[in-house]
Simulated scan of single mutants.
Amino acid sequence: MVFGLVGILLVVPNAEVIFHLSEIGQTAMQWSMAGGGVVYMILGTAAVFLYGLRILGLGRTLAFMLPAVLISLSSELLGTSTGFPFGHYSYLSGLGYKIAGLVPFTIPLSWFYVGCVSYLLARAGLEVDKKPSLWRHIGAISLGALMLTSWDFVLDPAMSQTALPFWYWQQPGAFFGMPYQNFAGWLGTGSVFMTVAALLWKNNPIKLERSQLNVPLVVYLSNFGFATVMSLAAGFSIPVLLGLLLGVAPAVAFWLKASAAPTQVTVEPAAQEVSVASVKVALK
């Protein structure tokens, strides 16, 4: 992330900086600009997948990953082709090979790993698996999708209007260049694949304690931090404040609400007393 931020915010607006770098530095900056965004998303995906493999197991991890990737890719392909559900936009180069010439392969991966950590935090914070109910499930899906969308509040204005944009809006909207329809598309897409995952996890509940939610919290906050630096550098402070309120605050609150440690029941060893009766033996 830091590597990418240096390239986008420092080198691109000030190209002359490159001439003051050593040969190794120039090569590093070329790598950063050529594949920094791709590597960033691949590493994020790998981190969350390995976390899921260790904490959730392969079955539950794939039960979230596959719907997230396939459903988000379908939404992105539909959006870049028709304008529904996000609005009319197109991806530029910089985020890797484009599927069907429209959507970079890294985009569905980012939906997966940010969506996964958002949903896990919301699910654990609302104690869905400890006190299961329909309303808790609905709440976890709704708040998980809101936290995912809050990341986009901060990311989208900066990434589409930076000196080296990664996508652009053919019909800019009222929210710092984004149409409000975009948020509805994010909420809807996130809610759909989180619902599918919840149904697939129905008979296989997960009970995470706070220490097991450290990685989801760090992944969410670090991605939000990346977007925040980009937005503030572009002069967008209101999206950051909105994201802090609707994304970061719930994420931290859910992490704090999760139990610090599994409940332990102490069993005192029972005192055992053996009575021995006196026996008199008469000998003849």
Score class of each variant (00 low, 15 high):
residue 2 V to T: 13
residue 2 V to E: 11
residue 2 V to W: 11
residue 5 L to I: 11
residue 9 L to H: 01
residue 9 L to G: 00
residue 13 P to T: 08
residue 13 P to L: 05
residue 14 N to I: 03
residue 16 E to P: 00
residue 20 H to E: 13
residue 20 H to V: 04
residue 21 L to K: 12
residue 22 S to I: 03
residue 23 E to H: 14
residue 26 Q to P: 08
residue 26 Q to D: 06
residue 30 Q to T: 13
residue 31 W to F: 13
residue 33 M to K: 04
residue 34 A to I: 04
residue 36 G to M: 10
residue 40 Y to K: 06
residue 45 T to G: 15
residue 45 T to L: 09
residue 45 T to P: 00
residue 46 A to V: 15
residue 47 A to F: 13
residue 48 V to W: 02
residue 48 V to L: 10
residue 49 F to R: 00
residue 53 L to V: 00
residue 54 R to Y: 14
residue 54 R to V: 10
residue 55 I to M: 07
residue 60 R to N: 08
residue 64 F to H: 11
residue 64 F to T: 05
residue 67 P to Q: 09
residue 67 P to I: 11
residue 68 A to K: 08
residue 70 L to P: 02
residue 72 S to I: 12
residue 72 S to F: 08
residue 72 S to Y: 05
residue 73 L to G: 12
residue 74 S to F: 14
residue 74 S to E: 02
residue 77 L to P: 06
residue 79 G to V: 11
residue 83 G to Y: 10
residue 84 F to V: 15
residue 87 G to W: 06
residue 88 H to K: 14
residue 90 S to C: 00
residue 91 Y to Q: 03
residue 92 L to G: 08
residue 92 L to S: 06
residue 93 S to T: 15
residue 93 S to A: 15
residue 94 G to C: 09
residue 96 G to T: 07
residue 97 Y to A: 13
residue 98 K to P: 02
residue 100 A to F: 15
residue 103 V to H: 02
residue 103 V to K: 03
residue 104 P to N: 11
residue 104 P to S: 13
residue 107 I to K: 06
residue 108 P to Y: 10
residue 110 S to W: 02
residue 111 W to T: 11
residue 113 Y to N: 02
residue 119 Y to R: 06
residue 119 Y to N: 02
residue 120 L to V: 15
residue 121 L to Y: 11
residue 125 G to C: 06
residue 128 V to S: 10
residue 128 V to F: 11
residue 129 D to T: 06
residue 129 D to F: 08
residue 131 K to F: 14
residue 135 W to R: 12
residue 135 W to E: 10
residue 138 I to T: 10
residue 144 G to L: 11
residue 147 M to G: 03
residue 148 L to G: 13
residue 152 D to W: 03
residue 152 D to G: 06
residue 153 F to Q: 01
residue 154 V to Q: 02
residue 156 D to Y: 01
residue 158 A to H: 01
residue 164 L to D: 09
residue 172 P to N: 08
residue 175 F to C: 10
residue 176 F to S: 14
residue 179 P to G: 07
residue 182 N to T: 08
residue 187 L to G: 04
residue 189 T to Y: 01
residue 190 G to I: 09
residue 191 S to P: 05
residue 194 M to S: 10
residue 199 L to T: 09
residue 203 N to F: 09
residue 204 N to Y: 02
residue 207 K to F: 10
residue 208 L to C: 10
residue 208 L to P: 05
residue 208 L to Q: 09
residue 212 Q to W: 00
residue 213 L to A: 07
residue 216 P to E: 12
residue 216 P to K: 11
residue 217 L to S: 07
residue 218 V to L: 15
residue 221 L to K: 00
residue 226 F to L: 09
residue 226 F to G: 01
residue 227 A to Y: 02
residue 229 V to F: 14
residue 234 A to W: 01
residue 236 F to K: 03
residue 236 F to R: 04
residue 237 S to G: 03
residue 239 P to K: 05
residue 241 L to Q: 12
residue 242 L to F: 14
residue 243 G to Y: 05
residue 243 G to W: 07
residue 246 L to V: 12
residue 251 A to P: 06
residue 252 V to E: 06
residue 258 A to P: 07
residue 262 P to I: 00
residue 263 T to K: 14
residue 264 Q to M: 14
residue 267 V to I: 13
residue 271 A to E: 12
residue 276 V to I: 15
residue 276 V to C: 05
residue 277 A to V: 13
residue 280 K to N: 04
residue 281 V to K: 05
residue 282 A to W: 00
residue 283 L to I: 12
residue 283 L to N: 07
